[in-house]
């Protein structure tokens, strides 16, 4: 047995365990936004052409061509849009907008930003969003199809 290789194997297994733990904890989880960065993020997203005023909830998704969960995330949002017309989905190619990617601190894809009609950043998430959290967010902010004025209290 090679002692250097055995050591590297041990380190690799430990790193994998830490990575798995981190993914379980954070992957797809919606994080809240603090005030200062929140306004900056909205401005950057609006500069990309995002118009939060047009929908109850606007989800901006940063994707790349080499991203497995991006397509599933897109499909999930389209599916939610079928019953919630007040939900808008904007897909942004991260690599063609690297300036915005850096300003927003987007490190992974998909990274999603959730904006309400007033342009307030409700939160962000990286990785395929957790189904229950996404549904809860949509139900909280978007009225179901057929509701008057697109609003329901």
């Amino acid at each position: 047995m090679d002692p250097i290789g055995a050591g590297a194997l041990g380190v690799a297994l430990a790193l994998t365990a830490v990575g798995t733990w981190w993914l379980r904890r954070r992957d797809g989880a919606v994080r809240g936004a603090d005030g200062e960065r929140e306004r900056a993020a909205t401005a950057v997203l609006e500069a990309l052409g995002v118009r939060p005023g047009d929908a109850d909830l606007t989800v901006v998704q940063f994707s790349t061509a080499f991203c497995g969960p991006c397509r599933a995330t897109r499909a999930r949002l389209r599916q939610l849009q079928a019953t919630r017309p007040g939900l808008a989905h904007v897909d942004v190619d991260a690599v063609s907008h690297l300036e915005a990617v850096r300003e927003l601190g987007v490190r992974r894809t998909p990274t999603l930003f959730y904006l309400d009609r007033a342009g307030r950043l409700l939160g962000r998430s990286s990785g395929a969003p957790r189904s229950d959290e996404l549904t809860a967010l949509v139900e909280e902010h978007v009225a179901p199809a057929g509701a008057r004025d697109g609003r329901q209290v």
């Binding site: 690799a12 297994l13 994998t16 990575g19 798995t20 993914l23 992957d27 790349t64 061509a65 080499f66 991203c67 497995g68 991260a94 690599v95 990617v101 987007v106 490190r107 992974r108 894809t109």
Partner: peptide, 17 residues
């Protein structure tokens, strides 16, 4: 291993990085 255990694609994430 990360890919095998969780489906997470580290190589894919490196593209944007």
């Amino acid at each position: 291993l990360l890919n095998a255990a969780t489906g997470f694609c580290l190589g894919c994430e490196l593209y944007l990085t």
